[in-house]
C-alpha cells in the first residue's frame, strides 16, 4: 500500500484495542487535517483516553492502522521514540518531572531526544515559557507551582519538541475550577496558531468554541461525529443528546 493515499495529518483506520478480555476500542476510524482541533467526548470508560494513548503508542492497538502525515505509525518496525518526537502529549495529572524546574522540564526533551545543546534547548524553553505566560516561574520546581501553572508547563514541555500533533488527555480535569481558565486560554491560543490538536475534555464551552469536529464515543465506538453545532444543537443520536446535556449541566 502506498503511503501517498494517506494525505491527512492523522488518519485512524479501523482501530481496535482490548485490555485483557475487555474490548476498549472497536473499529474506530476518523481523520484530521492540519490545523484541525478534534475533541473526543464520552462517558468514563468509553475509550477516549485509550484512543489518545494509541496515537503516540503509550498503548498498543490490536488491529487497524494509524497514519501520521502519511506514514504508518503502527506496526513493530516503527521506532516509537521517533514517533513521539512528532506527537506531543499533555497529561491529566501533569506528570511534570518532579526533580526539574519548569525550565529544565521543557529542556529535557530537546536536549536528550533532539540532541540540542544546552544553550539552544534553554532558548527554546524560554520561548515556550513565554508563550504559556510563565517566564517568571522558569526556575520554580513543580511542587512550587499551582496546578494551572504546572499544566501550562506541561503544554510548553510538549510544544518544545515542535510536534506535528498535540494530544490532550483531560488537561483540566485535575484542576480546581478557578485554575481551568488559564489552561484553556493557552489551548485556545495554540489552536489559533494553527496547531493540530486531539483533545479529550469535559469542557463543553471549549469544545463548542474551538473544535472543528467532535467525536462522541461510547462503549469503544464512535456513536456520532460532526461539527460541534451539530452535536450540541441537532444531535442525531439520543445517547449523544443526553450525554451532552448532562455534562453541560454538571460543568456550568
Amino acid at each position: 500500500m502506498s503511503d501517498n493515499e494517506h494525505t491527512y495529518l492523522l488518519e485512524v483506520d479501523r482501530v481496535s484495542q482490548s485490555y485483557g478480555t475487555e474490548k476498549v476500542l472497536r473499529d474506530i476510524s476518523f481523520e484530521m487535517d492540519r490545523g484541525d482541533v478534534t475533541v473526543l467526548v464520552g462517558p468514563s470508560g468509553s475509550g477516549k483516553s485509550t484512543m489518545l494513548r494509541c496515537v503516540n503508542r503509550l498503548t498498543e492497538i490490536d488491529s487497524g492502522n494509524i497514519y501520521l502525515d502519511g506514514e504508518r505509525i503502527t506496526g513493530p518496525d516503527v521506532d516509537v521514540n521517533e514517533l513521539r518526537k512528532e506527537v506531543g502529549m499533555v497529561f491529566q495529572d501533569f506528570n511534570l518531572f518532579a526533580h526539574l524546574t519548569a525550565r529544565q522540564n521543557i529542556m529535557l526533551g530537546p536536549r536528550r531526544v533532539l540532541g540540542l545543546d544546552k544553550e539552544e534547548a534553554g532558548k527554546r524553553a524560554d520561548e515556550h515559557l513565554e508563550m504559556v505566560g510563565l517566564t517568571p516561574q522558569a526556575d520554580s520546581y513543580p511542587g512550587e507551582l499551582s496546578g494551572g501553572q504546572q499544566q501550562r508547563v506541561g503544554i510548553a514541555r510538549a510544544l518544545a519538541m515542535e510536534p506535528k500533533l498535540m494530544l490532550f488527555d483531560e488537561p483540566t480535569s485535575a484542576l480546581d475550577p478557578e485554575l481551568i481558565g488559564e489552561v484553556l486560554e493557552v489551548m485556545r491560543d495554540l489552536a489559533d496558531r494553527g496547531m493540530t490538536m486531539l483533545v479529550v475534555t469535559h469542557e463543553m464551552s471549549f469544545a463548542r468554541e474551538v473544535a472543528s469536529e467532535m467525536l462522541f464515543l461510547d462503549g469503544g465506538k464512535i456513536v456520532e461525529r460532526g461539527p460541534p453545532e451539530q452535536l450540541f444543537d441537532r444531535p442525531e443520536e439520543d445517547r449523544t443528546a443526553s450525554f451532552l446535556r448532562r455534562i453541560t449541566e454538571m460543568h456550568s
Binding site: 502529549m89 506528570n95 536528550r112 510538549a158
Partner: peptide, 13 residues
Amino acid sequence: DTGQLTAGRAIGL
C-alpha cells in the same frame, strides 16, 4: 510515580 516514566517516554525518551 509511574506517570513520570510515562511522561518521559511521551517526549520520546
